[in-house]
Design a protein around this nucleic acid. Structure first.
Lengths: 204, 204
DNA sequence: GTCTATAACCTGATAGAC
DNA sequence: GTCTATCAGGTTATAGAC
C-alpha cells in the first residue's frame, strides 16, 4: 500500500495562486491588490496567473464567493435545525462564529466592504431570500417575543459577534488592547453574547 | 444693508472639489476612486485638483480625518459628561449615532475598511488612548457591573449601533428589507438599543 | 485660477520562446 | 506549464498657454 509521496505535499501551482490570492485580496481588497503581488506571493510568474485564471476579476470572484460562503455558512448551518432550542441555537451560533472569526479575523470586513462597491451582483448568488425569514430560528424568535421584529434581534446578535472583528484595528488602538487580550475577550464572548441575548429576550 | 449676493451661494472651487472627493471616496474607497471621477463630479478640470491639493493622497487624508472625527465625535462628546447618568448616556449615544448614521449610512464602512489597509497611521492622530478608558462612562459601567469588562459592553453597544449600517447591503438582501423599512428599523433602534443595554446591565 | 496637452509611470494581459 | 519581454490602456501629476 503506497503511502503519500510527501507528508507535507506541495500545493499545485493552481492552488498556490489561489492561496496567494486569498491572502492578498483579503488584506488589500480588490482595487488595491495587484496581480503582481499575488504572483510574487505565490512564487510564480505573472503570466502564469493569467494562464490558470483568465483575469484578475475571475480570480477575485472565486475568492469572494468562497469567503461569502464561509461567512454566511456559519449561521446557515444552524438556524434550520429543528432539534435545537432557541437558546441552544444562540450558543451554537456564537461559538461557531467566534471560532471561525478568530481564525479568519479580516474575513467580515473584506466581504462587507467588497459588497459595498462593485460586487453587489454576487449577493444574488446566495438565495437566502427567505432562507433566513422562514427558518426555524426565526420562528422561535417570533414565538418567544412576538412583540419584537426578529430582524432586530438578528442584527443585534450578528452585530455582537461580527462587529468586534470589523472594528478590530480601531478598537485595539482606542482600547489599548493587544492581540492576546483581544483573543481572550473574543473567547469570553462565546459565553457573554448568548447570555446577553437571553437577557434581552427576557426583558419586558 | 447689502444682502448676500446669492441665496444659495456657489461653493468655492476648493470646496467643490472637497465635496466631490467626499462623495467619490466614500462610495468607492481610496484605491478604486480616480482623481478623474472627483474632478468630473466637481465640474472642474483634473489639473485643478492637483493645484489645490497636492495629490490624491493629500486630498484623501483630508476627507478621511474629517470622517474619523465625525464617527468618533459622537461618542466623544457624550462619555465625559459628568452630569448625565449611565442610562442617559446610553440613550444619548444611541440617539445621536442613529441620527448621524441615517444621514451618513456609508460612513462607518468607509472608515473601517480604509483603516484596515493603508491608513493605519491615521489612528495615531486620535489620542483616545485613555480618553475612553478614563471616561465618566467607563467609570459608571465599572461601578454598575464590576464583574464585566467595560470594553465588552462598549463593543456590544457600538456593535448594536454601527453594525446594521456596516452590513446594510447584505442585510437588505437577506432580510428583504427596503430603504424605507430599513430607516424605520433604525429609528426603532434608538429606543431598542438602550433598553436592551439596560437589560444586559441588570442580568445576573 | 483654469484650461489643454503631455509626461511619467503603473497595471492587467498576451505573444512567443523554451 | 512556465518563463521573459512587451503591448495597450489607464492613472496621477505637471508644464505651459491663457
Amino acid at each position: 500500500m503506497p503511502r503519500k509521496k510527501k507528508v507535507i505535499p506541495d500545493l499545485s501551482t493552481e492552488e498556490k495562486i489561489k492561496e496567494a490570492a486569498r491572502k492578498v485580496f483579503l488584506k488589500k481588497g480588490y482595487a488595491a491588490a495587484r496581480t503582481r503581488d499575488i504572483a510574487e506571493e505565490a512564487g510564480i510568474n505573472l503570466a502564469l496567473l493569467n494562464y490558470y485564471f483568465r483575469s484578475k476579476e475571475k480570480l477575485f470572484e472565486l475568492v469572494m464567493v468562497e469567503k461569502m460562503q464561509k461567512l454566511l455558512g456559519v449561521i446557515a448551518g444552524t438556524i434550520n435545525d429543528e432539534s435545537t432550542s432557541l437558546e441552544e441555537k444562540l450558543q451554537l451560533i456564537a461559538s461557531h462564529y467566534i471560532d471561525m472569526l478568530t481564525a479568519n479575523p479580516d474575513l467580515p470586513l473584506f466581504v462587507l466592504s467588497e459588497l459595498r462597491s462593485g460586487s453587489e451582483h454576487l449577493i444574488k448568488r446566495f438565495q437566502f431570500g427567505g432562507m433566513l425569514l422562514k427558518s426555524s430560528f426565526f420562528k422561535q424568535l417570533q414565538e418567544k417575543r412576538p412583540d419584537i421584529n426578529p430582524l432586530q434581534l438578528v442584527l443585534t446578535l450578528l452585530g455582537n459577534l461580527l462587529f468586534p472583528f470589523v472594528a478590530k484595528p480601531i478598537f485595539q488602538a482606542v482600547g489599548n488592547v493587544g492581540q492576546k487580550e483581544f483573543d481572550a475577550m473574543m473567547a469570553d464572548r462565546k459565553i457573554l453574547v448568548p447570555k446577553w441575548m437571553k437577557a434581552i429576550l427576557k426583558s419586558k
